[in-house]
């Protein structure tokens, strides 16, 4: 489903250029569960942003499905992000002045879906994630775990093929972190491709496929034999 070919990205950090991605080749099949680990500055977040079309490579190619998205313009990439990709961030990135429901339906609002079509879909998700009672709460009235659930609901409302999670449990205590990770895995079991960046080895070990990165290069690509 995803194919990266010789992907490069260079950043200027002070005076020195840093190779955030150094000729990365990677293929990901639909439905895979993949964790990316490595020390900070190893390029794992850059890789995730690249996969999520938030960043553009300096060179190399990127196929998402059948399209070469590295050749698309900004407008087309925005449309791809909306349709194909869901993001879960460490800092949740919920909009404070909008209620849980309004945050979740934001991707649908952006594409101009009618309210009567949005409502049942949001209701289903709220129910599934056990957030019905919090639908009209503002983010600051929710606990960290609940906020991350809202963020996950927002990420999957458009039923994307790819779910990208950047340290999704980084701001959570271990109990709610466990809940969130289980939710993500459940979604993966239903067929969504899950790519998770983490520096917590325990979390990383749960994935069926594990990538280690260092200095912008793929150091190790580990797969479990089973499923």
């Amino acid at each position: 489903m995803i194919r990266l070919e010789q992907l490069c990205k260079r950043y200027q950090l002070g005076d020195e250029p840093v190779m955030a991605l150094d000729h990365v080749d990677l293929g990901i099949d639909a439905g895979e569960y993949l964790s990316v680990m490595g020390p900070s500055g190893s390029g794992k977040s850059t890789l995730l942003n690249m996969l999520g079309l938030l960043d553009t490579p300096d060179s190399g190619r990127y196929w998402l499905g059948d399209t070469e998205v590295s050749a698309l313009g900004e407008e087309a990439r925005a449309a791809q992000r909306n349709r194909q990709i869901g993001f879960v961030f460490q800092a949740y990135h919920l909009i404070d002045r909008l209620s849980a429901r309004e945050n979740i339906e934001l991707p649908l609002v952006l594409t101009g879906t009618a309210p009567e079509q949005r409502r049942p879909r949001v209701n289903d998700l709220l129910q599934r994630l056990g957030l019905e009672r919090h639908a009209d709460h503002l983010p600051n009235q929710l606990s960290g775990g609940q906020r991350q659930r809202v963020a996950i609901a927002r990420a999957v409302i458009r039923k994307p093929a790819l779910l990208l999670a950047d340290e999704p449990t980084g701001n959570l205590d271990s109990h709610s972190g466990q809940d969130v990770i289980e939710l993500l895995e459940e979604l993966n079991d239903e067929g969504i491709t899950l790519v998770m960046v983490t520096h917590d080895p325990n979390m990383g070990q749960r994935a069926r496929r594990r990538l280690w990165m260092q200095d912008g290069q793929l150091l190790k690509d580990e797969r479990d034999a089973q499923p």
């Binding site: 999520g52 938030l54 900004e74 407008e75 925005a78 449309a79 992000r81 909306n82 349709r83 993001f87 990135h93 909009i95 934001l106 991707p107 952006l110 594409t111 927002r154 458009r158």
Partner: peptide
């Protein structure tokens, strides 16, 4: 928020 909106699929024009 702008970054988030863009991540959620808002185009430059939007």
């Amino acid at each position: 928020e702008i970054g988030l909106l863009k991540a959620l699929g808002a185009s430059e024009r939007q």
